[in-house]
Design a protein around this nucleic acid. Structure first.
Length: 776
DNA sequence: TTAGGGTTAG
């Protein structure tokens, strides 16, 4: 078969036909970013068309789109001739790829070469000025635009509005908009976006109305921007924008649809979100992820998984963001199994090095697994861990009580060049509020002040919490006084810590500071202050707070109702406690515990048992506190066998893991009843770490029943665990006295005094013929 | 040559 001649392919004028075909190929490929178009490059040179600027500029554009900036630059450098389109082509490629500094350098070369920029060049340069906040150069360009009569160009107008607003000159930006002869929707939307970014809601909405008055119809871009503000302005506002965009007959593009779905799902209105979702058939991974994440945020995990399966069936591939959302669902329901299944999928689709998927996996393993190993493995896999990866790891370590390691990683992250942010600092501060790490809190405080992170209220609050957790209340107040402003969390944190430390009166005084600063109470603070009143058995403040709960409507919160029950139960006003309980639409375990606790503390054993049975009948699950209350009730009534029966049956039926306090209560019950050997067996066989406290309990019982040998054994074992706890000496001395061995009792007390005088010495202590090695 | 959507940490 003979080869077709040039004439056969390109007709009578092959040269012009060839050029025409090449131009068509390049235009086609450029519009679709198809790299195949570059294949015309070599015939273009061979046939001597390299001087053709139209072909060359199109090729340059294709190189920058498909082969990267370096090859495009090489092509540009090799061009025998260049015009303003060639220069602008490469410059805009730099801008599009975010190389703004290079773009501005390239502008300088362009000007040095004598080439005059046109509107297209200036538009690109203004974008770079905007990104780099190069206001001086930007305003020079503005002057150039005015001088050269280009100010009526609407694109340049929008670019200038963007530049002035991003550089903080919003008034000037607004002036440009108002003086534009032919302002379009883009110019108005740019200005509205700028106000929205600054959270100047009124100004943004006012401008939207002015836009309408100026007879510039808003478009989908305008509404996407306005919808994003619903995050701060609420559901009603979002619905209003929805009504407006419908009224304007705005085309529901995929992006606008996603923004609407996001707005509804943000407010847990999943039915409305689905309605919008179904309005048009187009879908992509963004939209599906928005739906899935909406279900996750609304705690509808099953629906989220179903949406994920539907997404796959519809042929849309899940991406890293989709997996992040799904993994959050696993963390929220603590499902390690589902998390592991998703992890396998993440690996299967090759996202195991992705930072977003990785971060969600770290969080899932930290929350769902009892060890930190899996989270570490994921962290090591991430190609480039970011501040969220490090923070999640640090917070997870702290939550698993690996405090030392969490500090190590805090230092490691800085060594790796990742700057901690307010999330990191508040996470690590959360680990400082324990007695073992006071210096860490102070060191972190120094770091925070140096890095000026203390202006962030969440960091300030975390510092207050750390100091207050260490019972360093003066330091906590010190932090509060230097904070830019304080919120409900600041004071609730402080008062909660004061309550934990038993300083209930101090906690109640915090209210004065809140009132003075107009800081409004929320359901958490009110519950906290009610708890302080309960701790003090203080009915006056308690009643005032009760009034406050009614007036403010905070009484509908379950935490407030439970605090009220606790308050009245502790103050022995069982009638009011019952009333608060009756008013609750759905009492939970804590509510029942409050009532039972009140009855037990008053010695009303029989009503307490019947209340417990009512609780079981109502279907509310007892927890470890309920079990403890039931055991205390048995203790009050000396009901040993009933106590043992409850202990075994309740822990089995409700899967409650017995804690030290439960065993302590049982040991007391058995001991007081004289069943000392059983009590001793219980201590020896309990599946928990031994604590000194439980030996004191049995030692006290030994005194009642004058069992010296067992008492001595308990004292010895307890002192081995806590050699400087003087209570053992006191209890033992009382046992000796009660058993008619006053001399031994006196000797034991003398030893206690000696120990007080030399508390830090290693010494051998003996009593009743036994020797003890006191270790420090 | 201009503007727009989704995830993950306290």
């Amino acid at each position: 078969m003979s080869r077709p001649t040039l004439k056969a392919v390109f007709g009578e004028n092959p040269s012009s036909r060839f050029r025409d075909i090449c131009s068509r190929i390049l235009v086609f490929c450029n519009s679709r970013s198809l790299r195949d178009g570059i294949c015309v490059h070599s015939p273009v040179i061979k046939l001597g068309f390299e001087d053709d600027l139209y072909l060359s500029n199109n090729l340059l554009c294709l190189y920058s789109k498909c082969r990267g900036l370096e090859q495009a630059r090489q092509f540009f450098d090799e061009m025998p001739h260049r015009d303003v389109v060639s220069w602008t082509g490469l410059l805009s490629a730099y801008v599009k790829s975010g190389n703004h500094q290079k773009a501005l350098q390239f502008l300088y070369s362009m000007l040095m070469s004598g080439q005059t920029p046109n509107e297209y060049t200036l538009s690109s340069v203004l974008r770079s000025c905007c990104a780099l906040e190069e206001f001086d150069l930007g305003s020079c360009i503005h002057t150039y635009i005015v001088k050269n009569g280009m100010e009526s160009n609407p694109i340049l107008g929008s670019n200038l509005i963007d530049l002035y607003s991003k550089c903080g000159y919003r008034e000037e930006a607004c002036n440009i908009l108002m003086h534009m002869e032919n302002s379009d929707a883009i110019a108005w939307t740019t200005m509205i976006s700028s106000f929205l970014e600054e959270r100047k809601w009124n100004l943004a909405l006012h401008l939207y109305l002015r836009m309408v008055e100026a007879k510039v119809p808003p478009n989908e871009f305008t509404f996407v921007k306005l919808l994003a503000a619903s995050r701060f302005l609420g559901l009603k506002y979002g619905m209003l924008i929805h009504a407006h965009l419908t009224m304007w007959g705005t085309q529901l593009s995929l992006i606008l649809k996603t923004a609407l779905v996001h707005m509804y799902s943000r407010f847990h209105k999943m039915e409305d979100a689905i309605k919008v979702f179904s309005l048009t058939p187009d879908c992509d991974a963004f939209l599906w992820t928005t739906i899935i994440s909406g279900f996750v945020q609304s705690s509808k995990v099953r629906e989220a998984i179903e949406a994920f399966l539907l997404m796959e069936v519809s042929g849309v591939t899940a991406n890293n963001f989709t997996y992040s959302s799904l993994l959050t669902a696993c963390s929220s329901i603590l499902s390690l199994e589902l998390g592991q299944q998703l992890h396998s999928r993440v690996i299967l689709v090759g996202l195991d090095e992705d930072v977003s998927a990785g971060n969600a996996l770290i969080d899932m393993y930290m929350k769902c697994s009892c060890t930190v190993e899996n989270a570490f493995q994921v962290f090591r896999c991430i190609y480039s861990p970011n501040v969220i990866s490090w923070t999640t790891l640090i917070a997870g370590l702290a939550a698993h009580n690996h405090i030392r390691e969490s500090f190590q990683f805090f230092l490691e992250m800085q060594k790796a060049g990742v700057e901690p942010n307010s999330f990191t600092l508040s996470s690590i501060l959360g680990a400082c509020g324990t007695a073992e790490y006071p210096t860490h809190a102070m060191q972190l405080h120094g770091f925070i002040v140096k890095s000026k992170a203390d202006h962030d209220i969440s960091v300030g609050n975390a510092l207050v919490d750390a100091y207050a957790g260490l019972e360093l209340f003066d330091d906590a107040w010190g932090v509060i006084s230097t904070m830019d402003h304080r919120d409900t969390i600041t004071y609730t944190t402080l008062a909660t810590r004061m309550n934990h430390a038993g300083h209930h009166g101090m906690a109640l005084k915090v209210i004065r500071h809140m009132v003075k600063e107009d800081v409004v109470m929320d359901e958490f603070s009110l519950a906290c202050f009610l708890s302080a009143s309960a701790g003090m058995n203080e009915m006056i403040s308690g009643r005032q707070l009760h009034c406050c709960s009614v007036k403010s409507g905070l009484g509908r919160w379950i935490s407030v109702s439970n605090a009220l029950i606790d308050l009245y139960a502790k103050c022995q006003c069982m009638k009011d406690a019952h009333k608060a309980f009756e008013e609750m639409p759905e009492p939970n375990t804590v509510s029942w515990n409050g009532l039972i606790g009140g009855l037990v503390s008053r010695g009303n054993i029989s009503p307490a048992f019947s209340m417990f049975e009512d609780m079981r009948l109502s279907g509310v699950k007892p927890d470890s506190v309920t079990l403890l209350l039931v055991l205390s009730a048995c203790s009050h009534g000396g009901l040993v066998d009933l106590g043992l029966e409850y202990f075994h049956s309740v822990k089995e039926a409700y899967g409650i893991a017995p804690e030290l306090l439960h065993y302590n209560c049982l040991v007391n019950l058995l001991g007081q009843a004289g069943r000392l050997d059983e009590a001793r067996d219980m201590i020896e066989n309990m599946p928990l770490k031994q604590y000194a406290m439980i030996y004191k309990t049995l030692l006290s019982a030994c005194r009642v029943h004058k069992n010296v040998p067992l008492g001595e054994e308990m004292a010895r074992k307890g002192m081995e665990l806590d050699p400087f706890d003087h209570t053992f000496y006191l209890l033992l001395a009382k046992l000796y006295d009660a058993s008619g061995k006053s001399d031994l009792g006196d000797g034991t007390l003398q030893m206690m005094r000696d120990l007080r005088s030399f508390p830090r010495l290693n010494q051998r202590v003996s009593f009743a013929g036994e020797k003890f090695n006191m270790q420090m």
